[in-house]
Design a protein around this nucleic acid. Structure first.
Lengths: 138, 138
DNA sequence: ATATATTATGCAACTTTGTTGCAATTTTAG
DNA sequence: CTAAAATTGCAACAAAGTTGCATAATATAT
């Protein structure tokens, strides 16, 4: 995996640093989305808080991760495996938040339906976040 | 309007206070959603920050307002006129964020399509947030 | 209309979250 | 291996959100 991670960083023209490798590793190991807090908690003995903020921002800028909005002021971040492999970002899938276990996941196979807006509105991006009970909890 | 506001508070079994009246008035006067920050800014000469937090929480609990998730950690609150008139809460409409003027609005006439999830997932609520350019900006 | 009980508010102190500038370190490229 | 470029940690801040408690305002029952 170490090589896969370095590869991903190089492909995005980023220096390969311990911090970035560690954070990417966290995303690759996790099958659910991570909040800033989660990442900070799992890296704090090694890296500064500020570095985590900056790294997430950098990954966002390069399209390596994307955000998932939630209704409680707690943005989560996720790596879209497929998109990332291609090196460009498409974030047209549904996100799911389990109210039982609290995890947020990308349902990459469920794509977002087109929604017609009133005359005059122009759609750039549509976000769908479904909350309920996930496969494992039900 | 003053009477309409007091009525709404009483209907929800809430004491009618200056603070609550003022915040409800802000929502009724605004045709777009408000962030905590907006409300604080428009009431700070009169009311404490803490009171604003508590009032918004109370209104949430009673279903007078609902949150609109955004991808940048800035939850907005909106009064759903129709729902509130009925005294119960249904939040099944699309939300729109204009990337030009920054306003967030409820498109109450656009209802959310049903989205089929994989076997095992149970849907409780579906949130749709569309970003783009609004009627006024285009 | 008024006293009393109930509820809401303000204040102070605090925790958490996010930001910025700069010096020191690490990484990359030659 | 060295110089240039980029990243990181630190310190100091700013902003956002929380909690307990005394005071003030509102509602309720005479």
């Amino acid at each position: 995996m170490a090589e896969q991670i370095s590869e991903l960083l190089r492909k995005n023209q980023l220096s390969v640093t311990d911090n970035r490798k560690k954070i990417l590793e966290l995303f690759l190991q996790s099958d659910s989305a991570l909040a800033h807090h989660d990442i900070e908690a799992r890296t704090k003995e090694k890296f500064d808080r500020v570095t985590v903020y900056r790294t997430l921002q950098t990954f966002m800028d390069r399209g390596i991760i994307h955000t998932i909005p939630t209704a409680d002021n707690s943005v989560k971040y996720a790596l879209c495996k497929d998109s990332c492999e291609q090196g460009h970002h498409h974030d047209d899938h549904v996100h799911f938040i389990c109210s039982s276990c609290g995890t947020t996941t990308c349902l990459e196979e469920i794509h977002i339906p087109e929604i017609k807006l009133p005359r005059g509105y122009k759609t750039k991006q549509t976000e769908v976040v479904i909350s309920g009970v996930c496969k494992l909890c039900s």
